[in-house]
């Protein structure tokens, strides 16, 4: 039952979170992360994050930026994920709650989920 509810929540949230980066609550993030295998923390000023912003990563990852605004994060994903950017899930962690939850220590930071 819990999984079904989670899946329904994922369906309702996955679409708006995809393509354009936006802020999301922890619950929304968890719903969006269902079915994904990793969380990729990145920032527009983090050069070495490029290695994890590839089209191959797009399908299985939730991209999170804690230090960028949505517009810049969008541009970064469009540049590096190319066509896959439209399907990627991207969250702007404005209050750095996810950064704290995953004990973000450096960038790039990839967490298996």
């Amino acid at each position: 039952m819990k999984n079904i509810l989670g899946f329904l929540l994922f369906l309702s949230l996955a679409s708006p979170l995809a393509a354009r980066c936006r802020t999301a609550s922890e619950a929304e993030f968890k719903a969006a992360a269902l079915g994904k295998t990793r969380v990729v923390f990145f920032a527009s000023w983090c050069k070495s994050c490029e290695a994890h912003l590839t089209p191959d990563y797009a399908k299985d990852s939730v991209f999170v930026t804690s230090y960028d605004n949505a517009e810049i994060a969008d541009e970064v994903l469009k540049k590096f994920l190319a066509a896959e950017a439209d399907h990627a899930i991207c969250i702007v962690d404005r209050d750095e709650r996810l950064a704290m939850l995953y004990k973000l220590k450096f960038l790039p930071y990839v967490v298996p989920i």
Binding site: W45, C46, K47, K79
Partner: peptide, 8 residues
């Protein structure tokens, strides 16, 4: 001026 990986 800020730097981003959009234009290194």
């Amino acid at each position: 001026m800020n730097q981003t990986m959009l234009n290194p």
